[in-house]
């Protein structure tokens, strides 16, 4: 065995077990604060390494086994790099699910899916729903749609907050667990928020989706309103937001069809008035 053999931590993040090899002690500390540690002899899904390189302008690299999917980043970005790396592991390998880039929230055993490109305000909205309105976070980044049942499976991990939304969310009364902000990443300043879990919900259970809502943050808009769109329109947009539709092919088409047929579909231009958002989204899960 090579160097740093003992320098690892095994933990559960969402539905998956990771073994992280790292010599960065601060990173190990952050990880053990955020994720549940596992016995080192536990089975693992992904063995990953985040290691420093270069002594001048130090950098960190992310590796899953022998694959390095990203360019190295400045050393202070180790934790965001780890989070992005873990997302990559899931989206590239977990083909038991159709994976859609979306936040997923649950209340009353019903799920709404918020697909959205960066800047759509889905993370801020998710944080608000979890912290202020009693929703459970199933996932901040990806909807895991079971290909046989069409149900959405939870894989809760910290919400990735960017730029102005860090200040907004940190003022919420129960926003206790936010990692320190990391500046100048490719996504600007980022911080990660651990969302509270309200009722005991089972990570082994799939939940039926009732609505697909495409949020767009439009500060100038005067009213918050859900605009219904057709299933077909939404279906095509979901494919665009999916990571592995092209790999699943027929199976992906069927799973997505099953999910989409059971849902209402809306676009949601909103101005960040949370209390109006809560009222509208609670209507969907009544």
């Amino acid at each position: 065995m090579t160097r740093d053999h003992e320098a690892f931590v095994t933990y559960r993040a969402g539905r998956f077990n990771f073994r992280l090899f790292t010599s960065i002690s601060r990173l190990k500390e952050t990880v053990s604060q955020i994720y549940a540690p596992l016995d080192p002899d536990n089975i693992v899904d992904f063995e990953i390494a985040v290691q420093p390189q270069r002594w001048y302008r130090p950098q960190v690299t992310f590796k899953f086994q022998q694959t390095e999917p990203f360019l190295p980043l400045p050393a202070n970005q180790a934790y965001p790099l780890l989070e992005w790396g873990m997302n990559w592991c899931v989206t590239q390998h977990c083909h038991q699910y159709l994976i859609i880039h979306a936040a997923v929230l649950e209340k009353n055993n019903k799920v709404i899916i918020l697909p959205g490109s960066p800047g759509s305000g889905k993370s801020t909205l998710s944080a608000a729903l979890c912290l202020l309105d009693g929703w459970n976070l199933l996932s901040d980044e990806m909807a895991l749609v079971d290909t046989t049942s069409g149900l959405v499976f939870p894989s809760p991990r910290p919400i990735s907050l960017k730029n102005a939304s860090i200040d907004i969310v940190s003022q919420f009364p129960c926003a206790k667990q936010i990692t320190p902000s990391v500046k100048d990443t490719t996504k600007g300043t980022v911080a990660h928020l651990v969302a509270p879990c309200h009722r005991s919900f089972s990570i082994d259970q799939g939940y039926p989706a009732v609505a697909v809502v495409f949020p767009t943050y439009t500060p100038t808009s005067t009213c918050n309103r859900l605009n219904p769109i057709t299933v077909g329109n939404s279906f095509m947009r979901l494919i665009e937001n999916s990571f592995n539709y092209h790999i699943l092919r027929q199976v992906g088409f069927d799973a997505l069809g099953q999910l989409a047929n059971a849902c209402g579909h809306y676009t949601y231009p909103n101005n960040g008035n949370f209390s109006e958002s809560f009222a509208l989204l609670n209507e969907l899960i009544r």
Binding site: C94, H95, Q96, L248
Partner: peptide
């Protein structure tokens, strides 16, 4: 194989099916 690891095997086959196609 421990049931918690089954998905790796199934997902690898799914990926390979698509590659083969």
């Amino acid at each position: 194989i421990p049931p918690d690891l089954h998905w790796h095997i199934n997902a690898a086959r799914t990926y390979h099916e698509s590659h083969k196609h």
